[in-house]
C-alpha cells in the first residue's frame, strides 16, 4: 500500500507547494478592511444625503479648534448664514468626518421657529482629519464647509480598564 501511494504522495506535496507559490504570486496583498472610515466612505455618506444635487461651498460655518489636544471631546459649533422664515429656512445640518470608524457625526433637524440656524455640541475625533458640514435649505439646495483639524490625542483607541 505504502509503496503504491508513495509516488503520488510526493507529487501531491509538490503540487501543493507549487500551488502555494502560485497563489502567493497571484495575490501579493490581501486588502484588509480599514478600522476607520476612508475618504471614499465620507464621499458615499455625503452622496447618500444629497443624492444627485449639487453642493455649493459657503453659507455654512464650522467652528472647531484647528489644533485639538484631546480628541475625546472637541467643541464644535455649526451655523448657517440664512434667515429662518417659514418661506425659506435651513431644514437640516449634517456633520461628517473622514477618519473616525463611521463617517457620520450628527444630523440636526431644524424648524423655521429656530430663529437662528446654529447648533453646538462636543464630538470625538479619532485622528487628524477633515470634518465636513452640509446644510440643506428649504429650497432643496445644499451648502458645505470643510475644516482640517490636527488631533494630538486620538479618541476611540484606548483600551477599557
Amino acid at each position: 500500500m505504502d509503496s503504491m501511494f508513495a509516488p503520488s504522495h510526493l507529487s501531491r506535496r509538490h503540487l501543493l507547494q507549487l500551488g502555494t507559490l502560485a497563489a502567493a504570486g497571484a495575490l501579493p496583498l490581501i486588502t484588509v478592511r480599514p478600522a476607520q472610515a476612508t475618504p471614499a466612505m465620507l464621499a458615499s455618506a455625503i452622496r447618500n444625503l444629497v443624492g444627485e444635487a449639487n453642493i455649493k461651498v459657503g453659507k455654512i460655518r464650522l467652528d472647531i479648534p484647528p489644533l485639538v489636544e484631546n480628541g475625546n471631546t472637541v467643541p464644535m459649533t455649526v451655523s448657517v448664514d440664512h434667515p429662518m422664515t417659514p418661506e425659506s429656512y435651513v431644514k437640516s445640518i449634517h456633520v461628517f468626518n473622514e477618519k473616525n470608524p463611521q463617517p457620520n457625526v450628527a444630523s440636526f433637524h431644524l424648524s423655521p421657529a429656530a430663529g437662528r440656524a446654529q447648533v453646538a455640541t462636543r464630538i470625538r475625533l479619532a485622528d487628524t482629519q477633515k470634518v465636513v458640514a452640509i446644510a440643506k435649505l428649504s429650497d432643496g439646495s445644499f451648502w458645505s464647509a470643510t475644516v482640517d483639524i490636527i488631533v494630538t490625542l486620538a479618541a476611540c483607541t484606548e483600551e477599557m480598564p
Binding site: 475625546n72 450628527a106 464630538i123 470625538r124
Partner: peptide
C-alpha cells in the same frame, strides 16, 4: 438631532428657538 458614536460622552447640545 440624530447622534452617532462620534458624539462625545455626556452629550451636550445647544440650539436656538
Amino acid at each position: 438631532a440624530d447622534l452617532f458614536p462620534a458624539i462625545a460622552a455626556n452629550p451636550f447640545l445647544s440650539f436656538f428657538t
